[in-house]
């Protein structure tokens, strides 16, 4: 790519200078509005946010704003709620991603082969993805509410719950509420992505394997899985990062409660900024979260590299 650009540049250009400038700047003109917006509304606030982590910024306190060095981080290292939120984030992310992936993969496999009514079935099972997340959260909160929803009564009848109570107010079980809502909402994303990857697998591979006497399980293990592996890896990586930042369902369903049992780091940041208006402390937690996510992503990339090298 670079070589062709250079050879193009060294060719004597006989067009007038203005026209050459216009030509060279054309792609920048096309992308300028998008870039300016992204820089102004995402990059600048990101840098500002990082600087807030080292400053005392409280909206309700007019005397705040000074530089305080690492004070927020010292406070953070003693903050029990933060450690609990960290643990909850692992549980929330791990549980959600695992269940979404398993059920999404099964759904993609079910939808892979044509059958009568596939278009309609596909539209219906993908519908939850279009439901606004705040509404998905409210909807599941209502389903778990014994006054108005059937789930506690059904779970009680099945013997899973000892009494038809709201699991969202039970400290031991509360996290399952947002996780179930998240799985319901997120299965379509995995299914759609995996379905697209499945349909890119050449069909004649299966026919050849079948002729050679490979059974369905064998075909799945030696054709489908290897072909899906790259998509699975990248989707799981991206979704893990995304879900660990995804606070909407928790803010709507439990607001972190009961007794902070469902507070994840992302919802903790939001609570600090929104309820306490302590922007400095919120930004310090956010910075820690950002570093943890970067470390996670780098570990995954390294792991992938070692696996590829060994293979």
């Amino acid at each position: 790519m670079d070589a062709s650009v250079i050879s193009y540049d060294t060719r004597p250009d006989r067009r007038p200078l203005l026209q050459r400038i216009a030509h060279a700047s054309e792609p920048y003109l096309y992308s300028a509005p998008a870039l300016i917006l992204i820089v102004a509304v995402m990059l600048v606030p990101l840098v500002l946010g990082i600087s807030y982590a080292f400053r005392d910024i409280q909206i309700l306190n007019p005397f705040s704003g000074g530089f305080i060095g690492l004070d927020h981080f010292r406070e953070l290292s003693k903050d029990q709620s933060f450690y609990r939120a960290l643990k909850n984030t692992l549980w929330w992310t791990g549980g959600s991603v695992f269940l979404q992936f398993i059920f999404g993969l099964i759904l993609a496999l079910l939808l892979d082969k044509p059958f009568y009514g596939r278009g309609l079935a596909q539209a219906l099972v993908f519908l939850p993805w279009a439901v606004p997340t705040f509404l998905a959260g409210l909807n599941w909160a209502w389903l778990f509410n014994p006054v108005i929803g059937p789930l506690p009564h059904w779970l009680y009848a099945l013997g899973i719950l000892s009494a038809p109570n709201n699991i969202l107010s039970d400290p031991q079980l509360a996290m399952w509420g947002p996780i179930v809502a998240n799985v319901w909402w997120g299965i379509p994303f995995f299914a759609i992505t995996l379905l697209a990857a499945l349909q890119a697998i050449p069909r004649d591979l299966y026919e050849a394997a079948a002729i050679d006497g490979a059974g369905p399980a064998q075909r799945f293990m030696s054709i489908t899985l290897p072909f899906l592996a790259p998509t699975i890896a990248i989707t799981v990586l991206l979704r893990t990062v995304w879900i660990s930042n995804f606070a909407d369902l928790i803010v709507v369903m439990t607001n972190g409660g009961p007794a902070d049992r469902t507070q994840i780091v992302a919802s903790y940041i939001f609570t600090q900024a929104f309820k306490r208006l302590d922007f400095g402390y919120a930004s310090a937690i956010a910075l820690v979260l950002l570093v943890l996510l970067l470390v996670y992503s780098m570990l995954i990339v390294l792991l992938r590299q070692t696996l590829l090298n060994r293979g």
Binding site: M42, G49, N245, A266, S283
Partner: peptide
């Protein structure tokens, strides 16, 4: 995380 940008 976009939630980082809420305050700034």
């Amino acid at each position: 995380p976009l939630v980082m940008l809420v305050a700034p």
